[in-house]
Computed example of a mutant assay.
Amino acid sequence: MQIQLWQIIVLGLLGGIAQWDETNMKLGFRNPAITGLIVGLVMGDVKTGLLVGGTLQLMTLGIGSYGGATIPDYATATIIAGALAISTGQGIDFAIGIGVPAALLLVQLDVVARMSNVFFQHKAEKYADERKYEKVELMNVLGLSTWMISRFVPIFICLFFGESLVQRLLEVSPDWLMGGLRVAGGVLPALGVALLLKYLPVKAYAPYLIVGFVLVAYLQMPMLGVALLGFAAALYNFKKAQSQDAAPAAAAGATYMGGADEDE
């Protein structure tokens, strides 16, 4: 399947909009699962797009861009890997093999975008001192544009030139290399879950973890069903904790009212 020019442009714009959304509206376009869905719609294979996005979403668990830290860009990697996987027909394992290195390489472009943004912010400070507020707004928009361009350009280049290159690499790649990519595609999502579990109170909620594992591993329950059961258990515990907190408060209120009556 040949990637059309309009698809490349749309996906490049998606990468830029996702970066804009991260610093503004927070609608969720930077989540690989969301970008994977959109990639699937644009490329005509929603299932593969969701599989790629959902798998790379697992790798984002347990990490965050705190204090301006630069982290692997799995959202942009989802766009590149998902589109190439669909166009070449290689599937999820091939996509993960491309997506992880792409996410790590995009870290460097994110650093460049942040550095270039400093120029515009210094200009904005200068115009603010001069009370030229329209130019302050313009500098902020231009500063954000560098981040958007830092995503659009690599997506466009990878999809415009990458498909033929990928096809050629597939023809000459040995079986052991492709096998290694498949193994990596299976291990890395588990690593993302492991990072998340490290920061969660697993010991306190071990019974729920075991129940979820049994439902998936032995009863073959779909992930949506497990998630709904987990939500129900969380809601039950939340309501129970609320009632326990409300009981001492109600007792204290009754004691206070009783003391007031005796004073009267």
Rank of each mutant, 00 (worst) to 15 (best):
T255Y: 07
G40Y: 00
S164W: 12
V10L: 14
D245W: 09
Y218G: 00
T146A: 13
E134W: 02
F213G: 01
G36F: 00
F120K: 01
A184P: 02
G179T: 02
G179A: 03
Y208V: 11
I34Y: 03
R114N: 11
Y199E: 10
V172Y: 04
D261Q: 09
S150E: 07
E264T: 08
F119W: 13
F156V: 03
G15Q: 08
E163C: 04
A190V: 10
M43K: 11
L142C: 02
K26M: 09
A85H: 11
V141A: 12
F156G: 01
A85M: 12
A232H: 06
Q2G: 12
L181K: 05
V187K: 03
Y127R: 12
A128L: 15
A124V: 12
Y236F: 14
V193R: 07
L169G: 02
D45F: 00
T146P: 09
T76D: 04
G53E: 04
D110I: 00
Y199W: 12
Q220M: 06
P201C: 06
T23K: 15
A113R: 05
L197M: 15
D245Q: 12
L14D: 02
L84M: 15
I96N: 00
A69M: 13
K203E: 14
S173F: 09
V193L: 08
P72L: 09
G16P: 03
L5A: 14
A85Q: 08
L224P: 01
L138A: 14
F156C: 05
G91D: 03
K132V: 05
M25C: 03
D21G: 03
Y66E: 10
L5N: 11
G12S: 10
M43G: 11
L109E: 09
M1F: 11
V216A: 15
V100C: 09
G54R: 01
E134K: 06
R182G: 07
P174D: 06
P189E: 07
Y208L: 07
L177P: 06
L56R: 02
L13P: 08
I9T: 11
L197E: 06
I80M: 14
R30K: 06
G15D: 07
M43N: 13
I3V: 13
G91F: 03
T70L: 04
A232L: 15
T78E: 08
T76H: 04
V46H: 00
L224K: 13
Q121K: 15
I34K: 04
L188I: 15
D261Y: 13
M59P: 01
V42M: 06
L142W: 14
L37P: 07
T146I: 11
Y218K: 07
I79H: 03
Q220N: 15
G99M: 05
G180A: 04
A247Y: 00
L165N: 08
